[in-house]
């Protein structure tokens, strides 16, 4: 199924569906540092969308804007047809309250480079925390689902372990399960394998491939070109806060059009 949907964004033939993520002229600066300089892109539902580029190019910042961990300075950014961080009423924008921002984030899962598991909770408790606390799910049902999710990421026997007792790859898989427990419609991955030993990367990528095959919409900031080529439906190369090149991963990775893309790829491939 991942091949059939792949053309949707490139050609715009899938207009009927509301894009899962839509960015129009998104700018972001931190003080004097202008990080995003007008990003336009669309992520279709069920698409695996890869963002690559040198460090400092703004790809992580853009990812964090999608679930409002960073506030954009100008432009429009929407998730599933709803503006991120604002409500539009009679042509005016109203900032969302903390509670409303939190409510929007429930549908967006995020996986961090440094896992950010809660160290004072076991793997199982990490996964149960948000469903119980945010959705008000009963502990028994949350525990049951958490156990299933742990099994899905191949860690059924680690339920009682604290994060400090797990390897990096195991922690990251628990972190993915934790995000999935909220049953999100969109998953954001911020360099999920960059902090891992090379031999542990494969396990995490396998879980992500599995997720992609299930039709999850995923935005993935990554340096794993192999993953992008194999699983990605579209790929964007960013540099210095702008989208330099985009298209199908195979095309961009093998026949880059821009000099900047060529020189970047020649270093990482």
């Amino acid at each position: 199924m991942s091949t059939s949907k792949s053309k949707a964004t490139n050609t715009g033939s899938g207009k009927a569906a509301v894009p899962m993520v839509k960015a129009e002229g998104v700018h972001k600066s931190f003080g004097a540092a202008h990080i995003l300089k007008g990003i336009d892109l669309e992520v279709a539902p069920r698409e695996v969308f890869c963002l690559i580029g040198p460090s400092g190019s703004g790809k992580s910042t853009f990812l964090r804007c999608i679930n409002h961990l960073e506030k954009i300075n100008s432009g429009r950014l929407s998730v599933d047809g709803e503006l991120v961080g604002y409500r539009e009423h009679h042509g005016k924008l109203y900032e969302l309250r903390d509670r409303e921002v939190a409510a929007r984030r429930r549908d967006i899962g995020m996986v961090f480079q440094r896992f950010n598991l809660f160290p004072h909770m076991t793997a199982l408790e990490n996964i149960m925390e948000a469903p119980v606390q945010v959705k008000g799910e009963s502990k028994a049902s949350a525990r049951e689902r958490a156990a299933k999710l742990l099994d899905r990421v191949g860690l059924a026997d680690k339920a009682g372990n604290y994060p400090s007792q797990l390897s990096g790859g195991q922690q990251q898989r628990v972190a993915i399960a934790r995000a999935l427990a909220m049953e999100p419609k969109l998953m954001l991955f911020d360099e999920p394998t960059s902090a891992l030993d090379p031999e542990l990367v494969g396990d995490v990528l396998d879980v992500m491939k599995d997720l992609a095959a299930d039709g999850m919409t995923m935005v993935v900031v990554t340096h794993e070109m192999g993953f992008a080529r194999e699983v990605g439906d579209s790929l964007v190369f960013m540099d210095d806060g702008v989208v330099v090149e985009s298209g199908h991963p195979r095309d961009v990775l093998t026949k880059p059009q821009h000099e900047r893309t060529k020189s970047f790829l020649s270093k990482v491939l």
């Binding site: 929007r104 945010v134 909220m182």
Partner: peptide, 11 residues
């Protein structure tokens, strides 16, 4: 990162 992870989960 702990605060961010919790916020990202909708807390």
């Amino acid at each position: 990162g702990q605060t961010e992870a919790a916020h990202a989960l909708g807390m």
